[in-house]
C-alpha cells in the first residue's frame, strides 16, 4: 500500500505544523477505508463460491430425504419410474439413459458442425466475412431454449412423423437436433478462440517451409489448439445434458431405455421440470426430484471439471512447449 509510508512521514517531527493535523487524519482514515473497501470486494469475489456451496447444500438437504425410504442403488439402477403409483417406483435408470442418448446423439451432430464452423471462421473466412459471421453464431447462442423446443415440437416433429412414417416425431433424434443447435455456438466459439491462440510464428514457419494452408492447419494449428477445442466440445456436451426446455417439449416424455433414435425418452431435466409443478412440497416425490437434481448436478459438474482440467493441463504456453 502506497499510503502508509506517506502518512508516517508527514506525522514525523520535522513536518510543518500547520497543515499536518487535517492531512494526517484524512490519510489515516483513507488507509483504513481502503482496507475495508478491499475486504468488500474480496467477499464479492467469493460470492460465487458461496452460492455454489449453497446450491450443493440445498440440493442435498432436499434430495437426501428420499434415501430414507429408497436405497441409492434402487434409485440409480431401478428400471421403473412410477413416482405417482401406489406403491411408487423411483428408478431413474431410464431417465439417465434418456439423458445419455440425447447427449451422445446431439454431440454427434454438434461436434462436426461446431468444429467445422470454427475452422471456417478461423482459417477460411476473410476478415470482413468473419466480422459478420461471428455475431451470427453468437445470436444462435442467444436463441431461448423454449423457442427451440417450440420449433422442434410444432415444426420438426410433424415433418419427421410424415417423412419416415414413425409413431411420434417427439423422439431422441428430434431432441438431439434441437440440442445440437444449442451446443454448436459453444463448441464453435471456444474452438475458434483456441485456433486463434496458436502462436503466429509457428504458423508462419510452417507456411515458409512450403506447407499449404490446409497442411499447416492439420499439422500445426489443430495440434496446438486441440486442448481448447476439447474444452469447447465438453462444455457443449455439458450444455446439452443440462438443457431443459428442449428435452421437456421435444423428447416425448416416455420413461424408457431407448433402443432406437426414433423412440421417446424422458431425460433427467425434463423429469424435474415436468413433475415439480404437481408435486406436494416435502413429499417423497418432491425429494426424489431433488435427488435427480443431485445426479444431474454431479454429471454436468463432472463434464465441467474435465473441461477445466483439459484446458489447464494441456494449455499451450507458447512456441517452446509444442
Amino acid at each position: 500500500m502506497l499510503q502508509i509510508p506517506q502518512a508516517q512521514a508527514i506525522t514525523g517531527d520535522n513536518a510543518p505544523p500547520v497543515a499536518v493535523a487535517p492531512l494526517t487524519k484524512r490519510k489515516v482514515t483513507s488507509t483504513v477505508q481502503e482496507a475495508r473497501i478491499r475486504r468488500v470486494f474480496v467477499v464479492a469475489g467469493f460470492f460465487s463460491v458461496i452460492i455454489m456451496g449453497l446450491i450443493v447444500l440445498f440440493l442435498f438437504k432436499e434430495g437426501l430425504g428420499l434415501f430414507s425410504t429408497v436405497s441409492v442403488s434402487d434409485f440409480l439402477f431401478g428400471e421403473f419410474w412410477y413416482p405417482t403409483y401406489d406403491p411408487s417406483d423411483f428408478g431413474i435408470l431410464p431417465l439417465i439413459a434418456g439423458s445419455m442418448a440425447v447427449t451422445v446423439i446431439s454431440s454427434a451432430i454438434a461436434v462436426p458442425l461446431g468444429v467445422g464452423a470454427a475452422l471456417y471462421l478461423g482459417e477460411v473466412a476473410g476478415h470482413r466475412t468473419k466480422e459478420i459471421l461471428k455475431p451470427a453464431v453468437e445470436l444462435l447462442a442467444s436463441l431461448p431454449s423454449v423457442v427451440l423446443g417450440f420449433v422442434g415440437m410444432v415444426v420438426i416433429a410433424p415433418l419427421m412423423q410424415e417423412w419416415w412414417d414413425i409413431p411420434t416425431g417427439l423422439n431422441v433424434l428430434n431432441a438431439s437436433m434441437m440440442l445440437a443447435i444449442m451446443a454448436i455456438p459453444t463448441i464453435a466459439s471456444i474452438s475458434e478462440d483456441a485456433l486463434h491462440s496458436v502462436p503466429r510464428d509457428l504458423v508462419e514457419a510452417s507456411l515458409a517451409l512450403g506447407a499449404t494452408r490446409f497442411e499447416t492447419l492439420t499439422r500445426v494449428i489443430i495440434p496446438g489448439a486441440i486442448s481448447g477445442m476439447g474444452t469447447g466440445v465438453i462444455l457443449g456436451m455439458s450444455r446439452a445434458m443440462g438443457e431443459t426446455m428442449v428435452v421437456l417439449m421435444v423428447a416425448g416424455g416416455a420413461a424408457q431405455i431407448p433402443t432406437s433414435i426414433f423412440e421417446s425418452v424422458r431425460p433427467l431435466p425434463a423429469t424435474i421440470a415436468a413433475e415439480m409443478g404437481e408435486t406436494p412440497f416435502g413429499s417423497e416425490h418432491y425429494h426424489a426430484l431433488f435427488a435427480i437434481g443431485i445426479v444431474l448436478f454431479i454429471l454436468t459438474m463432472g463434464f465441467n471439471l474435465v473441461a477445466a482440467y483439459i484446458s489447464q493441463r494441456f494449455h499451450q504456453k507458447g512456441a517452446a512447449t509444442l
Binding site: 463460491v49 455454489m52 449453497l54 440440493l59 432436499e62 443440462g242 415439480m276 437434481g293 465441467n304
Partner: peptide, 29 residues
C-alpha cells in the same frame, strides 16, 4: 484459483438446477 473454479462451475450449473435451488432457498427457506 478457488474463486475462478467457483465462477466456472456456477456458469455450468444447469438452469433447471437453478430452479430447484431457487425453489428450496428463496421460495421455501
Amino acid at each position: 484459483r478457488v474463486v475462478r473454479l467457483g465462477i466456472q462451475n456456477l456458469a455450468g450449473v444447469p438452469s433447471v438446477v437453478f430452479g430447484l435451488f431457487g425453489l428450496a432457498l428463496f421460495v421455501g427457506y
